[in-house]
């Protein structure tokens, strides 16, 4: 290849890349840099100016409420992630592997998605009449005589937030796992059986490892959404559970841009670590 043609090819590559790069800079890199920048601005009660200071960062780590919210976010994320995996994997196993007919497995996946036909907020708020003191679950349990007084911890508690989030996000775990399981060649499973392996061995040594990329993708989906959550905790916790997302909402609401930015930066870093950690488990580029 001559130097000029190589040069021309380089130019073509650059031209093809340019729209994407410009888009990313304008709508991803620049806003993130802006948030980082604003987090160092000086915040007074009614105004904000661009004098650089570490005050907001110091305030965040000095406040028990803020640091507490960070831990609550991490704790709830781990619980919801575990629950979506524990509930989602068997469902995916059934849809992706056990159901022989492709049509039925597609129908089942569509059934999983039907709740998405209503808005997110409706789905969250629908848990109130379910879990409330005089809600469906308490009424049924009382009618059956299983309990005498209603269980109050069901609503406006951490439990209700966990139930709500798990129900809303479990489908993001089911989808990718079912997809990976659906791609497993049935001959491979039969080969393992022929070699003398029982169901348990086949599951742990063949099926689970082959579905791992789906688990990782599902976990990334769920993590990204749960870590940034504020609506479910706002609607179902009765303000008892504060997540980083809720703090951002209140800080922005009271025009405390610097503090909102600090929390935003912390949340972004946390997400970056989580996603990078998951991507270390499997090489997704190889799988997809």
């Amino acid at each position: 290849m001559t130097a000029t043609s190589r040069n021309r090819q380089k130019k073509t590559t650059f031209r093809l890349l340019a729209p994407g790069v410009v888009w990313m800079i304008l709508f991803l890199i620049a806003p993130i840099m802006m948030i980082v920048y604003v987090s160092f601005w000086t915040q007074t009660t009614f105004a904000i100016n661009s004098t650089l200071t570490l005050d907001s960062w110091k305030n965040f780590f000095a406040s028990e409420a803020y640091v507490g919210a960070l831990w609550t976010t991490i704790r709830l994320w781990l619980i919801v992630l575990t629950l979506t995996f524990v509930i989602g994997y068997p469902a995916a196993l059934y849809v992706g592997l056990m159901v022989k007919s492709k049509t039925i497995s597609t129908v089942l996946l569509v059934l999983c998605v039907i709740p998405f036909w209503t808005s997110f907020l409706i789905r969250v708020l629908a848990w109130r009449p379910m879990l409330g003191k005089e809600g469906a679950i308490n009424i049924i349990l009382q009618k059956l005589g299983l309990i005498q007084t209603p269980i109050e911890v069901l609503l406006f508690s951490e439990l209700s937030v966990i139930i709500g989030m798990t129900q809303i996000y479990v489908v993001f775990m089911v989808g990718p796992i079912a997809f990976m399981l659906g791609r497993i060649d049935h001959n491979i499973i039969e080969a393992a059986r022929d070699l003398g392996a029982g169901f348990g061995r086949i599951f742990w040594k063949i099926i689970f490892p082959l579905s791992l990329p789906g688990v990782v993708v599902g976990a990334i989906f769920v993590s990204v959404m749960v870590l940034g959550e504020f609506a479910t905790s706002g609607a179902l916790s009765g303000r008892k559970v504060n997540l980083l997302g809720n703090i951002i909402v209140t800080q922005v609401g009271s025009l405390k841009w610097a503090m909102a930015s600090v929390v935003g930066v912390i949340l972004t870093i946390l997400l970056g670590i989580v996603v990078a950690g998951f991507l270390r488990i499997v090489d997704l580029k190889r799988e997809i």
Partner: peptide, 20 residues
């Protein structure tokens, strides 16, 4: 008898090797 207790070897047309 289920397949895994038979002790009969099977070689598949598409080999069916464990990819991982």
């Amino acid at each position: 008898l289920p397949a895994h207790e038979r002790g009969i070897g099977f070689v598949f047309q598409n080999f069916a090797l464990f990819p991982h």
